[in-house]
Write a protein that binds this DNA or RNA. Structure first.
Lengths: 253, 253
DNA sequence: TCTTACAGACCGAACGTTCTGTCTTTCATT
DNA sequence: AATGAAAGACAGAACGTTCGGTCTGTAAGA
């Protein structure tokens, strides 16, 4: 038994295994999105992933393990997509600055640029929350409420998740009034709203209503947030108490 | 075959049937709350309701019919509880008036009275949304997203539901700026937020966080709403276009 | 008498899990 | 470098259980 970590990354078998697991979890996401948690049987996952029953049960000894790992990957993706999209916002801000320099009115994307908070919210809705992965995560969140086994496994991760999401976004935005703690709370409200909107997504009469809801909510919440100025961008003051290690993100427990 | 409506209400058998159906649907609510949609089998419902398999299948030929009727009852309850709570708010407003008359600071309930919108939201959260029935409804809403049969049956009712909820509350509140249409939108945002918060309910580390979220959201949204003054309370101007029949509520289709 | 409310056995299908078997990769030993 | 045993990746049959739904029988009210 050599170091399993090393094996996972560098040996041929290790890469193969990781590919298989990722493939299966992707199938779980598709099934959750299309058929919900109740409709996501291992038969269905097996069918979508295109793997044998043996392969599936080999990698994931139980249905619960399957959902749990998928959930972990989805949570990581959500945080990652928030972090990686900083680049997108940076570009957006540049455009805003340029637009402001020469009469903003009829420059493409000027509306977004005018309110970066609103723009960020709308983009998050369109590309993260209301996506296949976002809807799959919704199914898992709701299932975790009543599935004891799932709750036991996922509850700690989920509890930490909200905080980590706020951490990720605090590099860019902060509260208009009050400290970072206030900003964390406000972004929490935003995520809560987005989750609620996702439930509505399928039974609202007109899809445009969703956009309307998003825009109205963004307009209401955005005065309470502002772009973090470059000056304090260097010291994001992430942590609650400020007494923790200044560098390095928390590890998922 | 006499008039089934008459039979339902007045005959002995009719009352008995209605009692049985209500009893079974109540069991569905309990099961949805405790075990979720995936865990709500007809066996489980039978067990909780304490009825035989024959009785259950006699009243509800399929699982889908069972959930659909339960959903209908939950939606009606939600609207009803909004309407009936007008009385509560009226009392609250009286208290507020009295408190304002003699130095509001240390009168019990003064905080609530100070912001009727926030008070209404907090009460709705505690007594309607975060209740057994509210959580059961959440399960149904989410299940409706992926369960085709359920969606086919419930989608029209659900689509109309949001509007009816706003109608019910518009008798008491309206928008600070803009017409009733704006107020309907704002209340829609509130309900969306409440739904989102309900998902979070089980995996938030500290339950006090939920209260904090509620209070912060209420503080943000309440400046955009105000109590409807007695003057225009007589003409609530419910309908969107104003071109519909002036009296009588919409029937659930 | 006739309808209907209910009781409970029963059905095939699908569920999640266990198990046996085969083939490939890995790695210590030569 | 060659090799042979161990480990692991997968395939697929089979398990007992539970699912939703049907069907027949019984008793009571209309």
């Amino acid at each position: 038994m050599s170091d399993p970590q090393r094996q996972m990354q560098f040996t041929r078998k290790g890469r193969q295994v990781e590919a298989a697991r990722a493939r299966i979890c992707a199938a779980v996401v598709v099934s959750l999105d299309r058929h919900g948690y109740a409709g996501t049987s291992i038969n269905r996952v097996q069918e979508i992933a295109g793997v044998s029953r043996g392969a599936l049960t080999h990698h994931f000894p139980s249905r619960q393990a399957l959902v749990a790992e998928t959930a972990g990957r989805l949570l990581q993706r959500a945080i990652g997509s928030t972090e990686s999209r900083r680049a997108a916002l940076a570009r957006m801000m540049e455009n805003a600055a340029r637009a402001a320099g020469k009469g903003a009115a009829d420059v493409p994307g000027a509306e977004e640029a005018g309110d970066p908070v609103a723009a960020w919210l709308l983009r998050t809705w369109d590309r993260v929350v209301n996506s296949r992965e976002g809807r799959a995560l919704l199914e898992i969140l709701v299932a975790t409420r009543t599935d004891q086994e799932l709750h036991r496994v996922l509850a700690p991760e989920l509890a930490a998740w909200d905080g980590r999401m706020s951490d990720a976004i605090l590099d860019l935005f902060t509260a208009a009034e009050g400290g970072d703690e206030e900003a964390r709370l406000l972004w929490g409200l935003c995520r809560t709203f987005l989750r609620g909107l996702l439930i509505q997504e399928r039974f609202v009469a007109d899809p445009a209503v969703l956009q309307l809801y998003m825009q109205r909510f963004a307009a209401i919440i955005s005065p309470h947030l502002r772009l973090r100025s470059p000056a304090d961008a260097q010291q994001p003051a992430h942590r609650k108490g400020g007494a923790e290690k200044p560098a390095g993100r928390r590890k998922a427990s």
